[in-house]
Design a protein around this nucleic acid. Structure first.
Ligand code: MN
Ligand code: MN
Ligand code: MN
Ligand code: MN
Lengths: 151, 151
DNA sequence: GAGGATTTGTAGCCTAGGCAAACTTTGACG
DNA sequence: CGTCAAAGTTTGCCTAGGCTACAAATCCTC
């Protein structure tokens, strides 16, 4: 029995650790969920409820797109929603949302500490937040701490 | 005549500047091209030619996927390729490849200067390289310069 | 409490980017 | 040369995530 039949078999679990491109594709598969959940939590905190129309406006997509995405999140057990009613996070959804928000905040603070203008930092943070390993986030944290809030 | 008919019309040109999520979707539309072109240039430099089988191995996808992607790049005028022969970059393709490689290198150096371990930095760089504005890249450059190659 | 604007949902379409399976071409080598 | 394994392509399939157009429900407002 051969030790490697790599030609046709693709590792599923730790290929992400050895191939950066595979890792990026995996990141992207989680990206939408994270953005939706973070945004839903935000809307609930700030306006009392998360409505399809507001999510669509924030994300810059059509409402039909949001409806479809919500159906998927429901399937995955991350949100609950009754037809024509607003959207709520499950406990699992809340966990992901909080983690996403934290990452987002860390990265934003980091970029600003690095000297990037606020509005540019906001934009870049939204993209890179899904691609950073714990180690890199930790390094960013250290950097923020070292910078004593420059004037 | 109303000043805004925003309800049905979506800005195309500068919406990217005002909505981070739209900007991220645009980034992702360019991501594959950039990665392919950078990789093709790399293979040519290091092995003399860019072959489907090697591109597939590097990206962690099947050869059929690469063939399809190359067809798209050809359509876009970024590569040339005859059937069953290896792949070459057009001038336009070379420009994009070089810019991508430069960004990649800057980000990698930056992460390492920040204290991230080499292999983790390699992985994270591959994801975030497509999401950074010129301003942020410039800030990273400055940071690298300030750090006098820590031991 | 009826009407109508707003919001939500459904149906159908499209493209990008994956895959497997089968076929074709190439080229190394006996 | 002829063979045949390796490389490349084609075909057909799938899912995610966009969109429009239209239908249905909700909920202001009078
Ligand atoms: Mn994001
Ligand atoms: Mn990305
Ligand atoms: Mn990349
Ligand atoms: Mn790269």
């Amino acid at each position: 029995m051969p030790l490697q039949e790599k030609d046709t078999y693709q590792e599923k679990d730790d290929s992400s650790r050895i191939n950066p491109f595979v890792r990026v594709r995996e990141d992207h598969a989680n990206e939408l969920s994270e953005d939706y959940l973070e945004l839903i939590e935000d809307l609930i905190d700030r306006t009392g409820e998360a409505r399809t129309v507001d999510i669509a406006a924030k994300l810059g997509v059509r409402q039909a797109t949001v409806t479809k995405a919500i159906a998927r999140l429901k399937r995955e057990g991350l949100v609950t929603a009754a037809p024509y009613r607003s959207i709520f996070l499950t406990n699992e959804g809340k966990k992901i949302a909080s983690r996403a928000r934290e990452h987002h905040r860390t990265i934003l603070e980091f970029l600003i500490a690095l000297g990037v203008q606020q509005d540019v930092a906001e934009i870049d943070a939204e993209g890179i937040e899904h691609h950073l390993s714990p180690a890199t986030l930790a390094a960013m944290q250290r950097f923020i701490q070292q910078q004593p809030a420059a004037a």
